[in-house]
C-alpha cells in the first residue's frame, strides 16, 4: 500500500492518443482549479457586498455551489490521470503477475460500466432541463441546463480517461494499480 497516490500518474508510453487524452484531462484540471479559485473570490465578494455595502446578495451562493459542482465533475478525469482517487489495494497486493493485471482490467471495466450508466441518465436529465427551459427556483433564476451540463461532461471525460487507462493497461505501458512487481 505504501505508495502516495500522486506518485504514480498515468503512463502513456509515447502513444499519441493516450497523450492527447491525458492532456485533455490536464486541461480539465486547470479549468477545475480556476472554478475553485473563482468560488473563493465570489464568496469573498458576497461577504463584502453584504457586510460593507449592505446590499443584496442574490446570485453568489448559488453560483459558487454550481462552480464547486462543476469543479468536482471536471476534476474527475484530471484526478484519475494523476491516480489521485484514493483506493484500498489489499487484494492487488496479494495477487501477482497475470492475475493482478486481470484484476486491474476488471476494476476498470466495472468502473467504466457504472460511469456509462450515470453518463447516459445524466445526458437525459440535462436534455430535459435544456428542452423544457427549466430554471432554478430563486430570484436569480439561472437556466438549469448550464449547471446540469457538468454531469454528462464530467462523467464523459472521466470515462474517456478510464478508457485510456484501460488501453494503457492492455498495451502494457502502465503497471496494474501502479504497483511495483
Amino acid at each position: 500500500m505504501a505508495t502516495l497516490p500522486s506518485a504514480r500518474a498515468a503512463s502513456t508510453g509515447g502513444y499519441l492518443i493516450l497523450r492527447l487524452i491525458k492532456g485533455l484531462s490536464t486541461v480539465c484540471g486547470w479549468i477545475s482549479a480556476v472554478m475553485i479559485l473563482a468560488s473563493v473570490l465570489i464568496t469573498c465578494q458576497m461577504i463584502f457586498v453584504r457586510f460593507v455595502m449592505g446590499q443584496s446578495t442574490i446570485w453568489q451562493t448559488e453560483a459558487v455551489i454550481y462552480l464547486m459542482i462543476g469543479a468536482t465533475l471536471l476534476g474527475l478525469p484530471y484526478v484519475q490521470s494523476l491516480r489521485g482517487h484514493v483506493n484500498v489495494d489489499l487484494i492487488p497486493i496479494l495477487v501477482k503477475g497475470r492475475a493482478r493485471k486481470m484484476l486491474a482490467g476488471l476494476v476498470l471495466l466495472m468502473t467504466m460500466a457504472v460511469v456509462s450508466v450515470i453518463l447516459f441518465y445524466a445526458y437525459e436529465n440535462w436534455h430535459f432541463a435544456w428542452e423544457r427551459g427549466w430554471r432554478s427556483e430563486t430570484v436569480w433564476a439561472p437556466k438549469l441546463w448550464i449547471p446540469y451540463l457538468a454531469l454528462p461532461l464530467g462523467f464523459g471525460l472521466y470515462l474517456l480517461q478510464l478508457l485510456a487507462d484501460f488501453v494503457a493497461l492492455v498495451l502494457g505501458v502502465d503497471r496494474p494499480f501502479g504497483l511495483e512487481d
Partner: peptide, 18 residues
C-alpha cells in the same frame, strides 16, 4: 422567491443562505 422580490422592493438586502 416572490417574498424575496417583495422584500427587495421594500429596501431590504436579500441574503441567500442555507
Amino acid at each position: 422567491k416572490s417574498f424575496e422580490e417583495m422584500l427587495a422592493a421594500a429596501g431590504a438586502s436579500i441574503s441567500s443562505m442555507a
